[in-house]
Simulated assay, not measured.
Amino acid sequence: MRIALYTDVFVPNVDGVVTRLTRTLDELGELGHEVLVLTPGSPPGRWGPHRVLRVPSVAFPWYRDVRGGLPSPRAERAVSAFRPDVVHAVNPVWFGAWGALSARARDLPLLTSFHTDVPQYMSVFGHGLGVLRRPVERWIRTTHNLAGITLCTSGPMVERAETLGVRGAALWPKGVDTELFHPAKASPAMRARLTGGHPGDRLVLSVGRLSREKNVAALLEPLRRLPGTRLAVVGDGPHRAELERRFAGAPAVFPGRLAGEELAAAYASADVFAFPSTTETLGLVALESLASGVPVVGARAGGIPYAVQDGQTGLLVPPGDTDALTGGLARLLDDAALRARMGAAGRADAESLGWRAATEVLVASYQEAVERHRTRRQRCRRPAP
């Protein structure tokens, strides 16, 4: 199958959407499918067997590390030459929306995927963007409903899509790399690095894009209340400088982005993973932590309850409740047996997940989109009685 994939985010960006896309591309290649990726930014020219085409873009002043792709004659010619069997529009708000519109104009089968609750983020970003929330919700409903099949990354996101009026919302199962992320990757050297040279102290880890909506600043007060505890904030993004200023003088380190074996060692070397974000659609980093045998303390919001089983693989606390967040972290940090039990349960849960199974669901959905498109065309051609 030949798939044209339109996405506003791709490598070298690092976030949950990019991770899902790159791992899916790996699996699609191994399954014998070919993808043309169209994306803005500074992507590589290829990802495995798949061609990646850079498109013109504009910067978003409120989120400078993400660029919005623009349609171009070169991109349209590339899609025409590629002759896709199906078009996949990722988060059709900006460039993904152009992909959806282009597919309809070309009369091609179309599937969309819903990864990011953009309307919810607009209130977080400020800059007066909150007034655009309702128009953006209507636009999302319109663009997703061009397809008739929308895959969502968690159960709560299926519900959110349905609330927005998106038809045909279904689950794209979660996946995690259980070979890379593994308890055996724990490293004394990495623990020393993440604790600022105090490996005997307790270590709380946060991983992700450092942007305002991730709510990392919520960890500052718990860190102040938990003596003998250190925080490592792995990642980069537009909010990093402000976070470093706010955490100045606190026992926290900001090692920047880590990837591959270094990231795996960071997860496995921590005692507890903290995830205070309230806007996650899934929380892939939580799954990576569980695969590493490290329990999670997260906000009971968005897709986090879909990733973390409260009381079994971690603890969920009310969003924005500093006392509850502090208490959840303290409970796990103070009880090594509980950490070990939840860590083992998290690892067992992660082992039941895999990118191949998730990708097979995607391929079946592509095939369904093709079949629906064929049926619709046949109905349109059927002569009136």
Score class of each variant (00 low, 15 high):
Phe273Ile: 05
Leu290Lys: 08
Tyr306Ile: 02
Glu159Ser: 13
Tyr63Pro: 06
Asn215Ala: 12
Pro199Lys: 00
Pro84Ile: 15
Glu221Arg: 13
Cys152Arg: 04
Arg245Met: 10
Leu53Val: 06
Asp8His: 12
Ala89Arg: 00
Leu316Ile: 02
Pro183Asn: 04
Val234Cys: 02
Met342Cys: 00
Val35His: 13
Thr313Gly: 01
Leu205Ala: 03
Ser80Ile: 09
Arg331Glu: 13
Gly32Trp: 07
Tyr121Lys: 09
His373Tyr: 01
Gly256Tyr: 08
Ala218Asn: 03
Pro73His: 03
Pro251Leu: 01
Arg167Cys: 00
Val55Ile: 07
Ala78Ile: 05
Ala81Gly: 13
Ala97Ser: 10
Val37Ser: 06
Arg20Asp: 00
Ser269Met: 02
Gly29Ser: 14
Leu5Phe: 13
Ala350Phe: 02
Thr19Ser: 14
Thr195Tyr: 01
Arg20Lys: 15
Ala264Tyr: 04
Val58Trp: 07
Tyr63Lys: 14
Val370Ile: 15
Pro73Cys: 02
Leu70Phe: 00
Ala100Lys: 05
Pro49Ala: 12
Phe254Ser: 09
Phe273Glu: 02
Glu360His: 05
Thr322Gln: 09
Pro188Ser: 04
Gly208Cys: 05
Ile149Lys: 02
Ala340Gly: 08
Ala81Phe: 13
Val35Ser: 12
Leu332Val: 07
Glu162His: 01
His88Lys: 03
Val294Met: 01
Gly45Glu: 12
Ala345Gly: 07
His373Val: 01
Val14Asn: 04
Leu220His: 05
His50Tyr: 10
Val17His: 04
Ala286Pro: 00
Trp62Asn: 03
Ala147Asn: 05
